Simulated assay, not measured.
Amino acid sequence: MATMTLFHSPLSPFVRKVMVVLHETGQLGRVQLQAVNVSPVAGDDQLNRGNPIGKIPALRLEDGHVLHDSRVICEYLDTQHVGLPLIPRQGSARWRRLTLASQADAIMDAAVSTRYETFLRPADKRWDGWVEAQGEKIRRSLANLEQEHLAELISGFDIVAIGVACALGYLDLRQPDFGWRDQQPGLAAWYAEVIKRPSMVATAPVA
């Protein structure tokens, strides 16, 4: 039975990350989905209750408290199931995985910022230098994943792999000409297999 409410926008990569965690941990049935349509200049009154900054995703718990930020929500959900944890519980491995998960989130942040700048901002006010800087952040991060962390991604579908997969999916959705596969063939091969997972298929965005 659904005891929590997830405020979401289906095209958000951060929302997708939470949805993949729900699928992977068998908790989808505990959550009722509440779609909201928000942007940097338009909020939602229901979303703002208990979440004054208006962030999505936001998870309203059974007791009425609201968790926001995908990292917080994913960590909470990871403590609510009996399977293998997606985030190491302690030690250096925990901080290493959380740091890499943050890197995946930063790719999403840069991609979403680019979307806002190129789609929502009036054409005469767009800042090309900003867009170029976001693209460089993404390219550096993907190169780092390819060169230094590919073996870790291949080793299991944990919180890092989920974040990277959702980030790549969002790039394909919003910047299909970004060309990351040409520069990161190992990452591309890994992603081609990962997107076959039921959790990724079920959460695939449709523009």
Rank of each mutant, 00 (worst) to 15 (best):
A143G: 14
E136Y: 06
E136F: 08
G64C: 10
W127V: 11
T99N: 01
E117M: 14
T203Q: 04
P52C: 06
H23I: 00
F157P: 00
T79H: 13
R71E: 10
P122H: 13
Q184N: 15
D172S: 14
A133I: 02
F178W: 15
I159Y: 14
G135T: 02
L33M: 15
L187I: 07
N51D: 05
E24L: 08
D124V: 11
M19K: 06
I53H: 11
E24W: 02
S70A: 14
W130Y: 15
D128M: 10
E136W: 06
G64K: 08
A165S: 12
A111K: 05
D124P: 03
Y76F: 14
A42R: 15
R96K: 13
L86M: 08
A104W: 08
M1E: 13
M1N: 10
S9F: 12
T79G: 14
V15R: 01
F14S: 00
E136C: 04
M4C: 08
E132L: 13
D69S: 08
L145F: 15
D63V: 02
Q46M: 11
A207R: 06
D124W: 07
S155G: 07
A35W: 08
H68D: 09
P88A: 03
V36H: 05
Q80C: 12
R140V: 03
K55T: 11
L100M: 11
A161H: 01
L187R: 06
K17T: 06
V38L: 01
Y76G: 08
S12T: 00
D105M: 11
S199K: 05
R126P: 09
M19H: 01
L173D: 07
N48V: 04
E132I: 11
P205Q: 06
L98C: 07
D128G: 10
R49S: 00
V36N: 07
S141A: 15
F14G: 00
L145H: 02
P198H: 03
R139A: 11
L120K: 11
A167K: 02
T3Y: 04
T25V: 00
R139D: 05
A167F: 00
D44N: 12
R89L: 09
G26H: 03
V201C: 00
D63K: 10
P40M: 03
A111H: 04
L100A: 07
H149A: 03
W127P: 01
L173F: 11
A202C: 06
L142M: 07
I195A: 04
V206S: 08
R126F: 13
I87V: 13
H23T: 01
S39L: 08
K125I: 09
I154E: 15
A133H: 12
P85R: 06
R60G: 05
V82S: 15
V82I: 06
A42T: 14
H149D: 04
S9R: 03
E117R: 06
S9C: 08
L100R: 10
R121K: 14
I138W: 02
R96Y: 12
E152D: 15
V66F: 03
R49Y: 05
T118E: 14
G83Y: 01
V20H: 02
A202N: 06
W180A: 10
I162W: 02
L59V: 10
A165Q: 01
G64L: 12
T25L: 00
H68M: 15
P122V: 12
A192C: 09
R121V: 14
P205K: 01
I73L: 05
H8L: 10
A35C: 09
S39T: 15
G163W: 09
I107P: 04
